[in-house]
Design a protein around this nucleic acid. Structure first.
Lengths: 339, 339
DNA sequence: CTGAAAGCGCTTACAG
DNA sequence: CTGAAAGCGCTTACAG
């Protein structure tokens, strides 16, 4: 069984037309039973499968969906892909993954590449760069060309499209409220710069929870860290100079890193300091003590995004429906780092 | 700027033929400067980009590469994807990601879907199921059809193709030797069932290191764990009933989980027990104490695999070259869990 | 019941 | 310098 076989080759083999072969293989009633039988048998034997590219060109749809993510080596984003992939495969779609690497330029290039016919629609989360720049022309362009886009997690209201997000504000609110209820008073926050939409919302949730509990927000207890790779000295300073009894980190990595620093300073979690993170990944499970976190349900976000996208692609009436913003509920997973 | 514009539409706009437009946009010397100018200007204004699907059909190549992985929410595999994606994008290829979810059936279905024209070649790592079944017909079929395949990490010698692996044996060997050198005598192993190629090789490296150091292999110190989600009771038993002073885990998760169990039993790492893992991921960095690991260099593996694949796709002579097995060197990253 | 034709969007050897 | 034709692999309305 060498090389893929085509309709043309089958048609030559039996001295019939390509149309006849095509119809025979689709078991069309137009074709005689006898012809269908021999053609189908031959096709099966030679493992004939229609060429996807030809079908795409003919049908004007590729059955591919593109997903553009800031990075992938990260529990949240890889679980989003897992969710997208599952739903997509179930519906007969392939998933093309591009990584913007937090760069605006790469995000634009990736979108343009895929938009030239390779896919039917996009799922994407903004790069940091893009959030900083606030330039979304590439996304709006694609949408104007009639290609549906679903934004997830890091979204913007400058683009009108379907969105799937979690309730960052409430997730943070409930995490901090939980700390307050367990008797903590000096709750520090380790967050991201404000241009990151999710960092901002989680910070607001933190503040609101304190205010509602009658605790004054102390800006000295708030540290902003750029990303995973920048240093954590400010956190060290914070723990050294302030009498902190709880830390809320807006990522699990932030929380665990803070916990490690505290442990090195001789503090015990949760006895001396409680810790809560965001994103319920493998870090939270394997840290010691294991970390209480706000679970983002990445797979669910991915599935929901794929579902919205495919509906818009396939359901006649859906295409014209107003855009939705689906909010996936986060949940607090309590572990050993709090009491 | 609505909808994507085609050559046909441009040709109608200026009352010329499609061929002329096509050539003009390629800046062909066949076409007059004036014609080229106006056509190019118009195309630019309307953001014309050739349709990838049409190009694929014409050129008989898609510029897509397919990658099939057992899972993705896992540091090693997601870093492989990152490496593949980087090299692929650089060379003008897109990456289609499929997840077999450790299932043989899904692996087969994914391969067949993609093999029908969607991609030019495969990069893949075997699912557990496939390793257990030892059924590789789907891979050989694809190769027989002339589609190149590069296997990574979880490979088999039953398939003749390019491979990129790490030196699992030596990685384990050096990790265990390091433990021996630091004075440890009762070194436990937490590994996977033998049908997993990588688990087997790492186990062999562990044994050889002990033997070479004149330490007898004690099968009672070897625990086999199915996967992340199965329980770790056997590990608990091991640590309770044997006087273990070091643990080598064939994944970082195994090692960190064992460390947590030991800590709960009141042991301190590395004072009482040293721990070494495999896969240098984020778990190792964020555990407390941080974990000494054998780094697998996932991105490098991904890049190398993509490089081999694209070479076979593009370089005339390369296509006929004998298959290579590239071995990426692992390296021991020393952290706090050993001394 | 079978086949020729047109078309999806593009490229390119060939003719004029 | 421009265009008609053939072709990549397939589908389908239409003719016979």
């Amino acid at each position: 069984m060498k090389q893929k076989i085509t309709l043309k080759e089958i048609s030559r083999r039996f001295n019939v037309s390509i149309s006849t072969v095509s119809k025979a293989l689709k078991d069309s009633p137009e074709i005689s039973e006898k012809t269908k039988e021999i053609i189908q048998a031959f096709a099966k034997e030679h493992n004939y499968k229609p060429n996807n590219i030809a079908l795409s060109l003919k049908n004007q749809k590729t059955k591919n969906i593109g997903i553009i993510l800031p990075e992938i080596v990260h529990y949240f984003f890889s679980s989003v892909i897992t969710g997208v992939e599952r739903l997509a495969t179930e519906k007969g779609y392939n998933v093309i993954v591009c990584i913007s690497n937090e760069s605006f330029d790469k995000e634009v290039i990736n979108m343009q590449m895929l938009a030239n016919g390779s896919i039917d629609g996009f799922i994407m989360s903004l790069s940091k760069d893009t959030e900083k720049k606030q330039d979304f022309h590439h996304i709006n362009e694609v949408i104007n060309q009639g290609m549906p886009v679903v934004m997830i997690d890091r979204v913007t209201d400058k683009v009108n499209c379907d969105k799937v997000i979690i309730d960052d504000f409430h997730g943070a609110y409930s995490a901090v409220s939980y700390l307050v209820e367990s008797g903590r008073k000096n709750i520090a926050l380790i967050t991201m710069p404000d241009y990151m939409s999710v960092g901002k919302l989680r910070t607001e949730g933190y503040k609101k929870a304190l205010i509602d509990a009658g605790i004054q927000v102390d800006e000295d207890l708030i540290v902003k860290v750029e990303d995973f790779y920048s240093g954590f000295e400010p956190v060290e300073e914070l723990l050294k100079n302030h009498n902190v009894d709880a830390v809320f980190g807006v990522t699990e990595f932030f929380a665990v890193s803070a916990m490690k620093i505290a442990q090195k300073m001789g503090k015990t979690a949760p006895k001396d300091i409680s810790f809560v993170g965001f994103t319920d990944g493998i870090i939270s499970i394997s840290s010691s003590p294991s970390l209480t976190t706000v679970s983002q349900h990445g797979e669910e976000i991915g599935e929901k995004a794929a579902d919205l996208l495919i509906k818009r692609l396939e359901e006649e009436d859906f295409e014209l429906r107003p855009y939705e913003t689906e909010i996936i509920k986060s949940s607090l997973v309590k572990r050993e780092s709090t009491q």
